[in-house]
Design a binder for these strands. Sequence first.
RNA 1: GGCCCGAUGGCAGAGUGGUUAUGCAGCGGUUUGCAAAACCGUGUACAUCGGUUCAAUUCCGGUUCGGGCCU
Length: 313
Amino acid sequence: MTDHTQNDVYVMIAGPTAAGKSSLALELAELMDGEIINADSMQLYADLRIVTARPDAEEEVRIPHHLYGVVDGGQRASVAAWLEMAAAAIADVRGRGRIPVIVGGTGMYLSAGLTGIAPIPDVPDDIHQSCMQDLGNWGGAAFREALGVLDAETAERLFDGDSQRLVRAMGVVRATGRPISAWQRDPHQGALPGTAFTVAVLPPRQKVYEAIDRRFEKMMEEGAQQEVARLGARELDPGLPVMKAIGVREILAFQRGEISRLRAIELASRDSRHYAKRQLTWLRNNFHAQYMINEKYSKSIGEEIFSILSKTS
RNA sequence: GGCCCGAUGGCAGAGUGGUUAUGCAGCGGUUUGCAAAACCGUGUACAUCGGUUCAAUUCCGGUUCGGGCCU
């Protein structure tokens, strides 16, 4: 492993929630003198630490962690914002002569990191707002029809119910005069610099589900309620991403006395299972890792990956 | 022992003499600036036996099981 090639490499670890990505990242970082960079959309927010299963203080002491809890819950993160922050973090880590280890479960962030994103200009907030309003007033079918006049291609492939993408597509044409489908064909930009070594942690579905079912109860005991109560007290817009983190809605409902504690745990665990399923689907079809782990993380795996990396670089 | 009610897909729960409710779970998929989001797709199930009928999950009777009431 010469310095020249080694400098260029970064590790990217993907996997569903509760698969043990963080432990693997930690061990790998220790073995290869690396630092960890977050690629999980929810762990980005400062307000939720327990409920989003962020690494704890002890782990952050062992290895430097970046991009955890760096966005205020009152803000909205985005792929583009993450890409920029991640690129800066990588430069920072490399500046110290260390190797970046990116870990996260947000597929969109990971693929953007690998291939970049289309260079679409920002949509001004007032345009976005008016699109939201129109959608509300017209309904999905009519809104989609209206979109079809400006961007037939996108209107064609979207469903009436897909409010998020419909509004986004409309916002982009209205703001730029050019269909989002055209923008998306432009060369992508902002891929993370360097050569990625991709790792996927893919334990059997059953194992992931079992881990999830055990985990939420534990979070409740570790202070999830206080954390969520604090967030609730901020009375943020319920449409904000943090407010949609798994567990927030359920714990707030429990605290209002609407559901039992047990029910809250059941619902949050169920949501996590659904989430894990979507992640697994995404990984299976979109993330072609160079190294696949078909079990829950265990210690020897980190060493094996390390030895592979040492040989390839 | 007698009387009454019920028996529908993994669960909950409508309904109909012939045209497969629905919700949840499960499973599959989409995913290009809110992504732990936003979506899309997917199951003839009607306890059992016999009868009536051109046709029965639906009507009638027996049986089994469950629930309730009575002695």
